[in-house]
Design a protein around this nucleic acid. Sequence first.
DNA 1: AACAGTTTATACCGAACGGTCAATACAATG
DNA 2: CATTGTATTGACCGTTCGGTATAAACTGTT
Lengths: 193, 193
Amino acid sequence: MPWEKSFDEELALEKAMEVFWSRGFDSASIAELIAQTGINRGSLYNAFGGKQPLFVRTLLKYDRERRKTLLAELEALDDPRRAICEFFDKIVSSTVADTDRKGCFLFNTVSESGVHDAEVNEIVANGLRELEGFFRRSIEVGQARGDIRKDIDPAPRASALLALALAIRVLGRGPYAETALRAIADEASNLIA
Amino acid sequence: MPWEKSFDEELALEKAMEVFWSRGFDSASIAELIAQTGINRGSLYNAFGGKQPLFVRTLLKYDRERRKTLLAELEALDDPRRAICEFFDKIVSSTVADTDRKGCFLFNTVSESGVHDAEVNEIVANGLRELEGFFRRSIEVGQARGDIRKDIDPAPRASALLALALAIRVLGRGPYAETALRAIADEASNLIA
DNA sequence: AACAGTTTATACCGAACGGTCAATACAATG
DNA sequence: CATTGTATTGACCGTTCGGTATAAACTGTT
């Protein structure tokens, strides 16, 4: 039997993810992916099949290792109101700490919807659905426990929270600094007062 | 004196604007700009100087002819509460009617902040500032007239409204359909109840 | 008719793009 | 040690990119 792979595939995916994350699909060049992953051009095509399949792999990795785990952590708090507030606290902190202004990989990909195929768009759509579901469930449970006002309609309010989260991430890539982002996050918290 | 310009510069700008608007700066190719404007390659460089100066021209045109005029119209209503509600009604309608999913040129450019120079980013930042200013003024005047609850802090609430507007436009380019967008718009209206 | 200024059309530039491929290096098997 | 089959490598492919250059066509003035 022959040789086994010599480079760490998961590590290469991590590096590739950062490239797509900060540059988007179109603007990320193969040359940059090669430079950042450290693996050779041919190896990249051999291991991942090309730019698009590699993008899908990194997007799935992000969705699994960042979005899903974050939401799982917050749900584990078993304190819906606090979970939502911490969510917004966290994305503001991440955005401010994100010196190269990558934003959120999923939200970035939403803005790029036009250039992606159905598979990618479905990954993104599913991520948004689950985030919105987290908000809705949190509101409902919070209401049942008396921590959140009963006159709030959970579904549309969950949509609004997702919208604010997206905006914080997008505006954070651009001209908005911490104070302004924090103000939006606070308004989000007010929405589940 | 010689010949006058034969093509309509303003019309060419309009066409070029649509290209940048839907594709963004990077993904818009000179070939497509030529095809859509109908003017020749050499003429384009002669008349506008190149891709980047042309982009700036179209962005300024958008800012002047769409954002500024829309806000002026709404302020002319002299009914702050209704102005805000109509704003959100309008962006949902535009987004739904926008079959090629261009979104909002200014908001799109925010997501692209990384690829643009200071001049472009300042045009965008100024647009956002003025939109936020419109929201803040509307809230303040509405409060003074007793149409909007006094316990609302105008500045952060204005930021939140801008955030919701941005999200509606971005999500509308992707997986969100009219009902979901309308839900977010309704939440925005609730914010100035 | 000569001229001036502009638009057109087309050819061309070097660079970067995504992607392919044949040669080589290599570890496990016989 | 020879064989086997994959991993690696760097050269190479055709295409497209933004931008330039040149020459011809055209219209108004002089």
